[in-house]
Amino acid sequence: MADNDYLIRLEGLTKTFSINSSRGFRSARLTAVNDVSFDIRRGEVFGLVGESGCGKSTLYKAALRLIEASSGSVYYQGRNLYEMSFRELMKVRREMQVVFQDPYDSLNPRMTLEELAAEPLRIHKYGGRARRLARTEELFAAVGLPVQLIKGYPHQLSGGQRQRLCIARALSLSPEFIVCDEAVSALDVSIQAQILNLLLDLKEQMGLTYLFISHNLSVVRFVSDRIGVMYFGRLVELAGKDELFDHILHPYTYALLSAVPEPDPGWIRKYAVLQGSVPSMLRPQAGCVFHSRCPHGDRLCTQTPPELRDFGGGHYAACHKAGELNLSLDTGCLAEKG
């Protein structure tokens, strides 16, 4: 993937956890993220989808070096995060911030909103008190929170307002790169739309780059420019949004996308529902990670793990049969009313 205009690049990122087996003292190894490589271009929204437990959250944490990766490297503006000293890392971290899933759990209930919004400023020693206050007021305006609330506490806010505050916190140090980890999943639908629009507006105004992680495919499709699909710790497909939806190459992507219901009672699921659930991470299978659930698997798939192959136009897929299967998804057409 030779493209020089990237902001952050992951190369062979792997994270293995060592856990104690429940049956005794024998410890087991769990590879949550397995050899993932991709890059995120400056100014784009990179969507990452996958079912729970597929390693999405571990991936971004290792990418920001919030946890130490087992192997692989991460280049942020050309510099490897895994070769930096703590001091250097602190500097770079100003430019990389996270908006977390649950706005109820990620705010300290005993801090005022001003303290919460200014906390990153304080940690990174930005200006004096007066300057921090001014910056906080600026941030409140940017995310659409009433400035009168500045002395209030999180319990006075609704879920949507809390998430706005979390966004204000993430924005406080004028970062370049923001990870949204299920940032709208805990919100009601009417509030979800407000927050999504806010995130997109802020991106335009401040020239931000997002890594947008969600299990909600409709939301990811709406916000993203490019989408990566993860399964079982691996990146199985990567493509531009429209390319991915129009020319699916990986059977898992197909299964995932076809499972998304439409808000239309006339819509009929025309595709086979994927059977079974995500296999246990503790018992990795030989061959392709998806072969136990894949309707197209054959002997090759049970033996050799497929590489992520380039299919041109920035479309990558890790499947032995990619390109040979007919996986077209008719999302554009309205099903006949039944």
Binding site: S190, Q194, R221
Partner: peptide
């Protein structure tokens, strides 16, 4: 206000307020 697989616009309609 719900994005669906068919949403093409870059802005969602929304319900203001809380």
């Amino acid at each position: 206000c719900v994005p669906t697989m068919r949403t093409v616009s870059r802005r969602l309609d929304m319900i203001e307020g809380n």
